[in-house]
Design a protein around this nucleic acid. Structure first.
Length: 923
RNA sequence: GCGUCUAUAGCUCAGUUGGUUAGAGCGCUACCUUGACAUGGUAGAGGUCCCCUGUUCGAGUCAGGGUAGACGCACCA
């Protein structure tokens, strides 16, 4: 083995072997366990959020596979309608063309080509991460089977009246030229203005003042509303206004919706361009005048001078014209929420169009109940509040998109505008008994990407066919995802799966935190703080990192800042930390918090941990390969250290399993780390040296220690495999044959997970080794503080040693001699004072290191003084507690007893320390 | 407006049903090339647990109120 761990040398080959051997497939035996991969965008690439979630899913998958479950990780990718179409459109634009130049058919063909070309990127990157999904079952949302499911669901919902088509106000993206759902609109507060405009009445010279943030929409006003009880305007209700600029007559109406306190108490009503006005328009049967084109220019409904103007230019023109007419009273600055499309960033217009909707109310009810009844459990639990809040206020879902890339709406129209919904055109004709020569054309719209994603739990398992997979793996075990898509995806999967299978899609939903940069900022191209997980694995030099971060920026003016920041923070780029270090980092950071700040320092720490495992294994192999480890029989004697490490390991297995069951991957990682480094390496390996390197050890003792060394390591590798698949596999291949005879080409990933072995739990061994540790630490502390070389052999004297201490000492003598580097230990007689010494307290026993020629008097006094002060504080605090009558009368007896014991101990130790201080001071 | 979350060491974070001296990693200080590992070892330093009030024998933990910040939903033109 190399002296340091080189991840590059093992990862790729290892993965290929797993995949070729078909180890990612379900075993077909055992309790079903399944996870759905939230399908990433097929043409995307892996970001930190994916890497994090995929690590968690893979750890769970590997863990359950090793536990013997029939484990399926169902993988696949999403066609991501708008996002993908935009990418390809941008490529066309770069060639000076638009999608309309190609036409629908050729454009869609082009997207398929792009998908073939770049569609493999993310799944290849997932492989680099070691993910063990069943690639043979990989699906794409536009695959034939999935498309069939989409059509089936659409038709069935339509038959039940749960999908309908209607002309309504929708969120319209005037850049992408499509409707979007409420969820795809982000409302950001921005600085705007409030314009106060005078609307003259038709007859009297009277007028009314309205306040608006969107003066250009007045071209589509069809009323002005006041509150019915507003005394100021009572006399005007029912009168007409002569709308400036258009000279249309519009009524003054009364409606409760108007807040008399706000603005002037008069609201201009534009039903075709505002959601609230739309509702009011319906209540009062107002005409709806759409004054905008689909790309948000003024249309022919408006006076000629505005036609063709962009909405924002029109706004300026309208304001200026009103000013000329002396109808603009004032303009004040005003903060308002501006709706923007989450993809395009453009300002969304409420726009009157025909769209397809899902009536969600009846679907939402069972979906709410499933969570309320505890059939589906959110982890952490408080996310169910977020879920309920949205589900209780859910609005009908606009599912049609005016795009070309996606599942086309299965509806056909004749020239009269009749609509026929069916699985195919042929079915439509048959179902509605249409004449063969009747010309039909299919609906041009495609479905919202999330419509097909909503079917993911059952469509990927073969629905609408009744497949064995569907029967076995639904409901799936757990969904691992981010809180950002609870509404987009999670809620809709629950609704659809309930509706079409009668089952819940998953039993648990583990909501992960969001990965941010080390300052808690969201990673984004414009901030220049994006970290590519592959770069953490493979490393990247400083120049390449800067180039990567500044390439293709939307705002090139930020490039310099980004470059500067990057050079400052990562002057040499990233080291190649390897997949296992990155994965372990993710596991260790997966606590319950909702934001996770990614810190490269931790990756480095866990890379070092990998190296530690590597070198510990190197040590173990050096002492076991070509040695007798008891594999072929032979007498074995387990040392106290051997029994201790086994006992300790049982605790680790127990804690690890509990942590995984609670989705506390941070705790599981911590447990594994602590045992490996602080127990196995720091103590056990050192303790073994006292046996293996001791000429007095018997063959049986050596055999016992070698056997323990190799077998504990083998168990430990299996324990850590779900988090660190590559390094554990690489080492295990060398370790396992020393533990048991195995067929060729076996992998650690299909071995069983370590189980707690009751007969290895050994309280006495645990206690004895803890005593040894205290003894050794006591001596080391004296050495450290007294500046005595760790190499210098010392003599020690024991004072006040109990029979139990003597027993322990006898049992552990070789360990203590070796690790504390003692050459002689004598026991002082009762009452014997002993020479001037530095002392360590092990319970009631004192260990004396004679000072002659070794120890600096002042240094020892200072060391003792420090210990005395600490102990005194302890005594004071405990005494205070016990002196409190209320404490003694109210606290549980066990707690009081504990305090009493503690106080007695501390007082005794304090006395000893003072005596010692006195003795040294008198020298 | 409604709702959710966060505040603990210089930094990034754990801290379970309230109960020993509040922990880890990184960073820091001193010493150490000891045959697994300097990506290492040994010994240390470092905390007003955001603030106030309360409940309690006892509060980092529970309650109320504040301060600072993050997020979601709905919004007044």
């Amino acid at each position: 083995m190399d002296k340091t761990f080189e991840p590059q040398s093992i990862e790729k080959q290892c993965y290929q072997e797993w995949e070729t051997a078909g180890l990612f497939k379900p075993s077909g035996e055992g309790t079903p366990y399944s996870i759905l991969l939230p399908p990433p965008n097929v043409t995307g690439s892996l970001h930190m959020g994916h890497a994090f979630q995929h690590t968690i899913m893979d750890a769970l998958t590997r863990y359950h596979r090793m536990k013997g479950d029939n484990t399926l990780w169902q993988v696949g990718t999403d066609h991501a309608g708008i996002a993908t179409q935009m990418v390809v459109e941008r490529q066309l634009n770069a060639e000076g063309k638009t999608r309309h130049d190609l036409g629908r058919e050729d454009f869609v063909k082009k997207i398929w080509e792009w998908k073939e070309e770049s569609g493999g990127t993310i799944t290849q990157q997932m492989r680099r991460l070691g993910t063990s999904g069943d690639w043979d079952r990989e699906v794409f949302t536009m695959d034939e089977n999935l498309s069939k499911a989409v059509t089936e669901v659409f038709v069935k919902l339509h038959e039940e009246g749960l999908i309908y088509r209607g002309k309504r106000l929708v969120n319209w993206d005037p850049v992408l030229l499509t409707a979007v759902s409420d969820l795809e609109v982000l409302n950001e507060e921005e600085n705007g203005h409030m314009w106060h405009i005078r609307y003259p009445l038709e007859e009297s010279g009277d007028s009314i003042i309205v306040a608006t943030t969107r003066p250009e929409t007045m071209l589509g006003d069809t009323a002005v509303a006041v509150h019915p009880d507003d005394e100021r305007y009572q006399h005007l209700i029912g009168k007409n206004i002569k709308l400036p600029l258009t000279n249309r007559l519009i009524p003054i109406i009364a409606d409760d919706y108007v807040d008399p306190e706000f603005g002037t108490g008069c609201v201009k009503i534009t039903p075709a361009h505002d959601f609230n006005d739309y509702e009011m328009g319906k209540r009062h049967n107002l005409p709806m005048i759409n004054v905008l084109t689909e790309d948000a220019r003024i249309n022919d409904e408006a006076p000629e001078r505005y036609r063709g103007m962009d909405r924002f230019d029109a706004r300026k023109q309208v304001v200026s014209d009103l000013e000329d007419l002396d109808l603009l009273l004032k303009v004040e600055p005003h903060k308002l929420k501006v709706p923007r499309g989450d993809r395009s960033g453009s300002v969304i217009e409420p726009y009157l169009t025909d769209q397809w909707y899902v009536a969600v109310e009846s679907l939402a009810k069972p979906a709410i109940e499933a969570v309320e009844a505890g059939e589906i459990r959110f982890v952490p639990e408080n996310w169910n509040k977020t879920y309920y809040q949205w589900m209780h206020n859910i609005q009908d879902w606009c599912i049609s998109r005016q795009l070309w890339w996606g599942h086309r709406v299965p509806a056909w129209y004749d020239d009269q505008g009749n609509i026929y919904v069916a699985r195919t055109e042929a079915e439509a004709r048959e179902k509605h008994k249409l004449a063969d020569d009747l010309v039909l054309h299919q609906d041009n719209d495609v479905l919202d990407t999330w419509f097909s994603s909503a079917l993911w739990p059952f469509a990927t398992l073969g629905w609408p066919e009744k497949t064995p997979e569907l029967a076995t793996y639904l409901p799936t075990s757990v969904l691992v995802t981010g809180f950002d898509i609870i509404f987009f995806w999670v809620a809709r999967m629950i609704m659809m799966t309930k509706k079409f299978t009668g089952q819940i899609p998953f039993k648990e939903i583990y909501i992960t935190g969001l990965i941010r940069d080390e300052n808690g900022d969201k990673m984004s191209k414009s901030k220049g703080n994006v970290i590519d997980p592959i770069d953490v694995i493979d490393g990247i030099d400083g120049d390449a990192l800067v180039a990567k971060r500044t390439r293709g920026m939307m705002q090139p003016q930020l490039a310099e800042k980004v470059a500067k920041r990057t050079r400052k923070q990562y002057p040499d780029g990233f080291n190649a930390y390897g997949t296992d270090a990155l994965r372990f980092t993710f596991a260790a950071m997966a606590s319950t918090s909702r934001d996770i700040n990614f810190d490269m320092g931790r990756v480095e720490g866990y890379r070092n941990f990998c190296n530690k495992i590597w070198n510990a294994s190197r040590f173990v192999l050096m002492n076991t390969e070509n040695e007798d480890c008891g594999l072929n029989g032979g007498k074995m004697e387990l040392s106290l250290a051997d029994r201790w490490v086994w006992a300790k390991f049982q605790q680790v297995v127990q804690e690890f399993e509990t942590a995984i069951a609670d989705y506390r991957f941070d705790i599981a990682a911590q447990v594994a780390y602590e045992f490996t480094w602080n127990q196995f390496c720091d103590w056990y390996l050192e303790l073994t040296k006292a046996i293996l390197n001791n000429p007095d050890s018997s063959d049986a003792q050596k055999r016992g220690s070698r056997h323990t060394l190799i077998n504990v390591l083998e168990n430990l590798l299996r324990l850590m495999h779900p988090f660190m698949p590559f390094i554990t596999e690489a080492i295990w291949q060398r370790v396992a044959p020393l533990c048991k005879s195995l067929p060729d080409n076996v992998s650690i990933m299909v071995q069983s997970f370590p189980a707690v072995e009751q007969d290895r739990i050994d309280a006495q061994a645990l206690e004895d080794i803890e005593w040894v540790k205290r003894f050794i630490l006591g001596i080391r502390n004296i050495r450290g503080e007294m500046d005595i070389s760790p190499n210098k052999p010392l003599d020690a004297l024991l004072r006040n040693a109990s029979n139990e201490d003597i027993r322990k000492l006898k049992a552990t003598r070789p360990f203590i001699d070796k690790l504390a580097k003692l050459q002689k230990i004598d026991n002082l007689m009762q009452g014997e004072k002993g020479p001037a010494s530095a002392t360590a307290l092990i319970g009631e026993m004192e260990v004396l290191i004679p000072m002659a020629g070794l120890i600096d008097k002042d240094a020892e006094l200072a060391r003792l003084q420090k210990a005395i002060e600490k102990m005194q504080k302890d005594v004071d605090r405990t005494e205070g507690k016990l002196a409190n009558a209320k404490f003694v009368s109210n606290a549980p007896e066990a707690v009081i007893e504990k305090e009493r014991t503690k106080l007695a101990q501390a007082k005794m130790q304090l006395v000893k320390l003072r005596e010692q201080h006195q003795t040294i001071a008198e020298l």
